[in-house]
């Protein structure tokens, strides 16, 4: 299989070994441009390892990664970011003591002339515009992030990544530890981004109903390989649950008898 230019990102036979442990045993997957891909699988299936390789944090032991049809070696997170791959980590990497707009502009602050003083006004205006366009609702861009709810923080973290002209967005469990309302907020945000079509996304999640609601396609990782690759509308929560659980059942039954 060769990489096609229609894919935002594509991997071939990615293997990752940590000493004697094989975390990924040959992952071949792709993410089309403008697509939202759900990445599911039980704990230890290799989801996090895969994401860490795609964001440049880890280097694969074997295998190739193609970005826009060109083979790339992602040397570091900064390198991956410079190529347009942004990751929203579970810890979000926000600064609780800083305000929303300060977080959104962290390390790409706007400054004035001749004195290099921060242009708070312009940053606030742009942050407001960006959040409004994405449909993110928060009390004010002047609010300290510490005061925001989990869902609001997640929205800010996503907005920050999108604002940096990301082409590929990796969302590591964006719905973890979130109530139904907050979860719906983030799903709405992902849907808004998808409608605009500027960014392709990989979403790691545990809640299959939510994954199917927002993703175009689902990849199930099992033992470090892609065990299932189906369009979201052709599968169901029951099928996915069954696939993930069956092994346990087999193991448990085997153990008891």
């Amino acid at each position: 299989m060769s990489a096609t230019a229609a894919d935002a990102i594509r991997t071939e036979d990615i293997v990752k070994r940590f000493g004697a442990v094989t975390a990924l045993a040959g992952v071949t997957m792709h993410l089309a441009k403008g697509e939202v891909l759900g990445l599911i699988g039980d704990n230890g299936a290799g989801k996090s390892t895969l994401v860490k390789i795609l964001c440049g944090f880890l280097q694969p032991t074997e295998g190739r990664i193609y970005l826009d049809g060109r083979e790339v070696r992602l040397r570091s997170v900064t390198h991956a970011r410079s190529l347009g791959i942004e990751t929203v980590y579970q810890d979000l990497a926000l600064i609780p003591e800083l305000t929303v707009y300060q977080n959104m502009f962290l390390n790409r602050e706007l400054t004035g002339r001749p004195l290099p003083l921060l242009n708070h006004r312009e940053m606030k205006l742009r942050a407001e515009a960006c959040l409004r366009e994405m449909g993110v609702r928060i009390p004010s861009v002047n609010t300290e992030v510490a005061k925001l709810s989990g869902g609001q923080r997640q929205s800010i973290a996503i907005a920050r990544s999108v604002y940096s002209q990301a082409k590929v967005l990796l969302l590591d469990e964006p719905l973890a530890a979130m109530g139904a309302k907050e979860g719906a907020l983030i799903l709405g945000l992902i849907r808004n981004l998808k409608a605009k079509g500027d960014v392709s996304m990989i979403v790691i999640a545990h809640n299959y109903a939510q994954v199917l609601e927002v993703c175009d396609r689902v990849n199930l990782l099992e033992h470090g390989t892609v065990a299932l690759d189906k369009p979201a509308r052709e599968t169901s929560v029951e099928e996915l649950t069954e696939l993930v659980v069956r092994e346990y059942r087999a193991a448990a039954q085997g153990g008891h008898r």
């Binding site: 980590y89 810890d91 990497a93 800083l98 962290l106 390390n107 602050e109 400054t111 290099p116 921060l118």
Partner: peptide, 24 residues
């Protein structure tokens, strides 16, 4: 309060890992 350096100083103390992930 009004320079990048000041903001980065707060960010460094507020969330060291997060700040460095953001490239500070």
């Amino acid at each position: 309060a009004h320079t990048r350096f000041g903001l980065h100083t707060i960010a460094t103390g507020g969330n060291l890992v997060g700040a460095s992930e953001a490239g500070v």
